[in-house]
Amino acid sequence: MATEATEAAGQMAEHGAEASGMPQLDFSTFPNQIFWLLVTLVVIYLVLSRVVLPRVGSVLSERQGTITNDLAAAEELKQQAVEAEKAYNKALADARAESQKIAAEAKAEIQAELDIAIGKADAEIAAKSAEAEAAIAEIRKGSVASVKKVAADTAKEIVASMGIKADAKSVTAAVTSRMKG
């Protein structure tokens, strides 16, 4: 405290009224302040221009680049997604068309086979029914002849049982004419 006071007193004596009024106007300290200011400014300038500004500048531009790249990548991915969706829809439509085509083809094939089978079956049926008809016609013919004989025989027997002698020939003729009638 005492040394401070003496120091202050010494300064007062040395610099007169200036030191006690505004110490800033004490010109004897100016060279000192200016020297240290210039040293400081040069140091700060070197630190800034050599280290800080390039570093911060590169970090900022790198960040800007990253953001731009990411946005571009996102845009590209979005484009790809849209394309993928398009491709998917196209594949879906193709598959649907293909399946429809295959179904139509299968249907046509089956139809053709079916037609052939039906044709064959029809032919077979026709053949069988013709055969059967022929058989029926024969049977019918046979049956008419038998009926005639049976009728003639029956009529002869009836006539004979009545006690009338009948000519076999005339009975047969009468039966035949009757049957025709």
């Binding site: 004897s28 300290t29 060279p31 000192n32 302040q33 200016i34 020297f35 240290w36 200011l37 040293v39 400081t40 140091v43 700060i44 630190v47």
Partner: peptide, 17 residues
Amino acid sequence: IHWYTPTNVTLWMALAV
């Protein structure tokens, strides 16, 4: 105070740096 004397100016400028 010579031009090179380390003063409180020096100290606080150094702290700023």
